[in-house]
Design a protein around this nucleic acid. Structure first.
Length: 491
RNA sequence: CGGGGCAUAGCUCAGCUUGGUAGAGCGCUCGCUUUGGGAGCGAGAGGUCGUCAGUUCAAAUCUGGCUGCCCCGACCA
């Protein structure tokens, strides 16, 4: 064709290209979720259809969490999604917090209901009702239960995975005989979330405590893991609440202790949702699309066979399936992209968009040389591509996947740290929270916190559990402070 | 709940100003040629133009209402 060499390919390449993150981060996110085939919009405003690829990612998240929960003695159970309105009203803070976002069922079986029923926004009240019946004696404690379900909160402004009317999550609910045990459990589950985020998702998080204003409605204490997204904004990625005796009192969860005295239980709850999928997208994604951590990726390796002639095809496909089996036997999640109607180049781009950690190309030359090409998703272009021997390939791949996992965590951690600034005055604070986190000494009141939010849109994401110790000067009030806080703009 | 935008083929959109037989690209189906970074040619399938009403001989096009979705702000995992 008579056009300059580059222009044709540039046009072709731009055709289906994502908008770059720097151009419009929001648009990048929205279109990526759709194009990577993770999810789609539901027919009711603000609802989400999770497609098989997105659900597979969620299933891997579920599996990683579930085995950690069970290792601490937690059992799964199923609870009703319908809650009597009166239950919500039993805990004053709780109803106040959730009232504005409740979905209420007024009709059933063609009849108007005598009492409206609430679709669970979370199950603390239903759990309270059940536990009150289950607990009689200190011998019945602790109760350690987790629910995998979905909940409904009538959000005004929604965004796929991050905030939808209905979302999928787990909610753990425990009841204990002592305050110390409840406190221990609250921290233990935060540790579980931290370990999961860092070691499975390669998402560096800051474990910390929420301020009184950001606390869960009805909790004495809310712990959180906070992550920094690619645009410098914060995402609350999992929470663990110490509910004290608030719900035990509201629902009469009582037991007889060893002295035959009636005591209220101490309860906790903790949750992590499909929002975490959003955290993975925005922590690791780049201008070419998703970058999934190998430990959670639905496919860890995608194989793209390449051939021209029929005789090549037979040889290539034979080798492809042999290697597929070999990798699969080694516990690697492999996908062979044997679609006939698409060119290898298209497949490369497609799987990059979908974030598969490692691409394995195999063509006639490889069959001849006993080699394959491996291209790692986290290192784009030629740099990330290498030809390796087919001998010991399972080992090579396993090592490479581990390396990718580690490199992704290192990269995300570096980004987070480079965009976290220790500041001591308001001007520097404003600069810091416009691009990332500000770490400050804080001694302000609720009113001060509100004012900072109004003036800068930044909120206290958490008081990190890891504190430097000693004392500092509050950047806002100038008062002596004993705790440092992380501020940031949040999703 | 306020402000803005959009609604025409599976997707992205043109057509509307100035009313007159429904369009393009991509995708899809079939065939042939292709395949190491988003393939080419040929032949097809596919739309009561969001909805209701009004104006008119005639409405995708003009007018009004309604509905839905997306984006931006206040509230939230």
């Amino acid at each position: 064709m008579g056009k300059p060499e580059g222009s044709f390919w540039k046009i072709m390449a731009d055709k289906d290209k994502l908008i770059s993150r720097s151009e419009d981060y929001n648009e990048w996110y929205n279109s990526l979720v759709l194009k990577a085939d993770l999810a789609d919009y539901g027919p009711v405003r603000g609802t989400m259809i999770v497609k098989p690829y997105g659900w597979a990612l969620w299933e891997n998240i579920q599996a990683a969490l579930d085995r950690r929960f069970k290792a601490t003695g937690v059992q799964n159970a199923g609870f009703p999604m319908f809650i009597p309105m009166s239950f919500l009203q039993k805990e004053a803070q709780h109803v106040e917090g959730f009232a504005p976002e409740l979905a209420v069922v007024t009709h059933g079986g063609g009849q108007e209901l005598a009492e409206p029923i609430v679709v669970r926004p979370t199950s603390e009240t239903m759990i309270g009702h059940a536990y009150a019946n289950w607990v009689q004696s200190y011998r019945d404690l602790p109760i350690l239960i987790n629910l995998w379900n979905s909940v409904v909160r009538w959000e005004l402004r929604t965004k796929l995975f991050l905030r939808t009317l209905e979302f999928f999550w787990q909610e753990g609910h425990t009841a204990h005989a002592t305050a110390a045990e409840a406190d221990e459990r609250t921290r233990m589950m935060l540790d579980v979330y931290t370990d999961f985020a860092v070691n499975e998702a390669a998402v560096p998080v800051i474990p910390g405590e929420k301020s009184a204003m950001e606390r869960f409605a009805g909790a004495d204490q809310t712990l959180t893991i906070e992550a920094m997204m690619g645009d410098g904004k914060a995402l609350q990625s999992g929470t663990s609440h110490n509910l004290g005796q608030n719900f035990a009192r509201a629902f009469d969860i009582q037991y007889l202790d060893t002295n035959n005295e009636l005591q209220h239980c101490w309860t906790t709850s903790w949750g992590l949702s499909t929002r975490f999928v959003g955290a993975i997208i925005m922590t690791h994604g780049d201008d070419n699309g998703l970058v999934l951590p190998p430990r959670l990726a639905p496919y860890q390796v995608v194989m793209v066979p390449i051939y021209r002639k029929d005789e090549d095809k037979t040889a290539v496909l034979t080798a492809t399936h042999r290697i597929q089996q070999e990798l699969s036997d080694a516990g690697v999640r492999v996908k062979v992209d044997d679609r006939e109607n698409l060119t290898p180049g298209y497949k490369f781009n497609d799987w990059e968009l979908r974030g598969v950690p490692l691409r394995l190309e195999i063509g006639p030359r490889d069959v001849e040389n006993n080699s394959v090409a491996l291209a790692r998703r986290d290192v784009p272009g030629k740099e990330g591509k290498q030809f390796v021997s087919q001998n010991g390939l399972a080992h090579t791949v396993t090592e490479l996947l581990a390396d990718i996992q580690q490199a992704m965590l290192a990269k995300a951690t570096r980004f987070r740290d480079e965009n976290t600034h220790d500041v001591t005055n308001y001007e520097d604070f404003k600069t810091a929270v416009s691009t990332g986190f500000a770490r400050v000494w804080w001694a302000g009141s609720d009113a001060d916190e509100t004012r900072v939010k109004e003036e800068t849109k930044a909120t206290i994401r958490c008081f990190p559990l890891a504190q430097p110790g000693g004392e500092g000067v509050c950047f806002y009030t100038g008062q002596p402070a004993t705790r440092q806080a992380i501020f940031g703009r949040a999703y």
